[in-house]
Amino acid sequence: MNPTTLIYIAVMAGVTYLIRMLPFAFFTKKIENRYVRSFLHYIPYAVLSAMTIPAIFYSTDSPVTAAVGTAVAVVMAYFDLPLIAVALAASAAAFIAGLFI
């Protein structure tokens, strides 16, 4: 294993663990500040959105197959289908689109 990569992984794992552990082990009070609570409520959606767009269009070998997969995922997610079904269908759609181009 590459030592530099291991250091990166250690930093990732350390930060991620502390984020979970510190409040779970030591924080027993409730967050009262309304703005902080609101910010924490919205942050996951903002993160996932920023990570997905526009990266999803570069996630396969061609923007066309990626767009087809994205369209299928958006429609299925709109109808509240399970996470795993949406993920697999997006991938299958991109694969099928790839057969035609």
Binding site: Y45, L48, T52, V74, A77, D80, V86, A87
Partner: peptide
Amino acid sequence: NAMGILLYGMFLAIIIPPA
């Protein structure tokens, strides 16, 4: 190549229903 979109598909499935 087609599987590269898997994780992003899951992200969309997390954000779209509440949005």
